[in-house]
Design a protein around this nucleic acid. Structure first.
Length: 367
DNA sequence: AACACGTGGAG
DNA sequence: TCTCCAAGTGT
């Protein structure tokens, strides 16, 4: 352990800190659907959904998901498309696929029981250091650190740690701190309390230090620097991609839909055919070329976009221009991922929010 | 280590 | 509008 951290930890009494922290948690903890019991599967699903996602956003998804896939066996046996559909709108869709992959492994390799050792649970797809610690401590009472953004923020203030929490290497420093501070009597509440404190009191901007149960232990408060912590460098700006999107109908009134590749952005989700716009030629001309080359269809397009829409991802922005068109004649379809679907069938697909919005707009104006 | 990977809410 | 985020993981 770094001597620097050692010194800071020597200024705090773990038992007193635990008592104040856990006592507060027992009084103030929110009633959340995944706090009703300690079922490892239920904890697991909630932890995956909560990755980079707000509690309020997760709650309705969690309810629907657990209703649809109440057990490890149910999720293991479900078709992947059903799982993705249940995840529609939640984002970071690889979480859903990784979760099912891991659940299938638990079903087959561990007789359906979520492993309780750090090594085994960490080997599961989608279970990183945070999630492993969260499941182990909350479901099994194992005193492992579960260091997320909340924990790094809270402890950076309590211990006055000036490491840049945006750097991957910083997590280890906070794990060391948690290993020293954690309650072995109640690791579950200790870890949850640290996160709850970060969510409710020790917030990113304007922390409520006067209401804080561990104020007496807090080095940043003592020094008046709680607003300067944590140190977190911001990431660089996102790039912009001009996208040409087409809603195409054939003579039967079906729509042309495309399934995205199984790797990368929005993997395996469905969409209206879309292409990155190139410099130079007109949008309609480019679209005609693309549709013929990639989908083997000749389309009569409206000359102007039917609607435009920006969609912001974490790392890029789509500036979408959506055109409408009708099929004139078709040759062999070059792209296997493309298919003509009825309205009912389109509704059943998993679309990214950007395309779901376009579809909703389209349906509301054509019915 | 650095970047890809979604979304909706807050200030 | 803009920026930052919210219970991170995979590569």
């Amino acid at each position: 352990m770094k001597e620097d951290l050692q010194l800071k930890l020597s200024n705090i009494e773990p038992e007193a800190f635990q008592k104040d922290l856990i006592g507060w948690f027992e009084q103030e903890m929110r009633e959340l659907p995944w706090r009703k019991n300690k079922d490892p599967y239920q904890i697991w699903v909630s932890e995956i959904m909560l990755q980079q996602t707000r509690v309020d956003t997760v709650i309705p998804f969690y309810h629907r998901f657990m209703e649809q896939f109440p057990t490890i066996e149910a999720l293991a046996n479900a078709p992947e498309e059903k799982v993705l559909k249940a995840w529609e709108g939640l984002g970071y869709y690889s979480r859903a696929r990784n979760l099912q992959t891991a659940v299938r492994e638990v079903h087959e390799q561990y007789e359906g029981r979520v492993p309780s050792s750090p090594k085994e649970i960490s080997s599961l797809k989608g279970v990183g250091p945070y999630t492993a610690g969260a499941i182990l401590s909350i479901a099994y009472g194992v005193p492992e650190p579960a260091v997320d953004g909340n924990v790094m923020r809270v402890l950076s203030r309590v211990l006055s740690i000036w490491e840049d929490i945006a750097k991957p290497s910083s997590r280890k420093v906070f794990e060391e701190a948690v290993r020293y501070l954690i309650s072995h009597k109640n690791p579950s509440y200790f870890n949850q309390a640290l996160m709850e404190l970060g969510a409710l009191v020790c917030t990113p901007t304007s922390p409520s230090c006067l209401l804080c149960p561990v104020q007496a232990h807090c080095s940043a408060f003592a020094e008046g620097v709680q607003r300067d912590l944590p140190v977190k460098t911001r990431k660089k700006s996102t790039k912009v991609i001009d996208l040409l999107t087409v809603i195409v109908q054939n003579q039967q009134g079906e729509w042309l839909m495309n399934q995205r590749p199984s790797q990368g952005l929005l993997a395996n989700l469905w969409e209206f055919p879309s292409f990155e716009k190139q410099q130079g030629e007109s949008a309609v001309s480019q679209l005609n070329d693309f549709l013929l080359a990639d989908f083997g269809v000749n389309i009569v397009l409206d000359p102007e976009p039917w609607m435009v829409q920006d969609h912001v991802f974490s790392h890029l922005t789509w500036k979408m221009a959506v055109f409408k068109g009708e099929l004139t004649k078709t040759s062999t379809q070059n792209r296997q991922n493309a298919v003509w679907l009825t309205k009912e069938e389109v509704e059943k697909l998993t679309l990214p929010v950007s395309h779901r919005k376009i579809w909703n707009q389209y349906v509301s104006l054509h019915s």
